[in-house]
Design a protein around this nucleic acid. Structure first.
Lengths: 102, 102
DNA sequence: CCACTGCATGCCTTGACGGTTATATGCCTG
DNA sequence: CAGGCATATAACCGTCAAGGCATGCAGTGG
């Protein structure tokens, strides 16, 4: 599963949104999300296997934090599409031309 | 369904990858993808309803092209995470510090 | 060593989604 | 107006993933 598919899941996006602010333990995330602990753990596993988060063991707790790699990949994937709006004026002109045709 | 979820689908990403180069008719996409026409049409419907593509009627054909809006939104969503690697050196230092602790 | 805590895993159900075949719709041609 | 082409929609099936509960397991404190 690539980063994009993993992050398509709303709950997982909520998780990374929380982790963006600060690293968290599983219990803290369970509190933030209002979901069962197993459900959260399963999402964390998916995020881990995608390399989006890493866990650090601290006593019986696991402290989860974000990893930049997958986000960079996502950014790289998005890059070629960025032309669409950086060349926006030219696109707009073409769009209007097209409308006059049709 | 938001843009991220829509673009998580591999086939749909292939479609937008093709459309990024040039606009296409449905038949052309069917040729490129090697899939049944109904399958392609369904993906195009999903992409349309997400505002990722628009169709222009031309005789019996529909010419599909990309729209920049959803990609901009995606870029905006990604923006706050970009801090992670723009401040990459500071992050790296903190990471190493942490490892020394654990 | 025992009970508890924090988290992971297994099993199950359910709902959503992708693909296929068959069919409908709209347009264009003869 | 009949027939064919390009596309959309319908009906159906198989798969898969998300969520719940119950349970397993490692580390901790008494």
């Amino acid at each position: 599963m690539d980063a994009l598919a993993v992050l398509a899941e709303p709950t997982r996006r909520r998780i990374v949104d929380v982790l963006r602010v600060r690293e968290c333990t599983v219990s803290e995330l369970v509190g933030s999300l209002g979901m069962s602990q197993p459900a959260v753990s399963k999402h964390l596993r998916v995020l881990r296997e995608a390399g989006i988060v890493t866990a650090q063991v601290r006593a019986q707790q696991r402290v989860y934090r974000l990893e930049p790699g997958p986000f960079r990949e996502l950014d790289a994937w998005l890059a070629p599409y960025r032309r669409m709006w950086t060349h926006h004026l030219a696109e707009l002109e073409r769009h209007l031309d097209r409308k006059e045709d049709g």
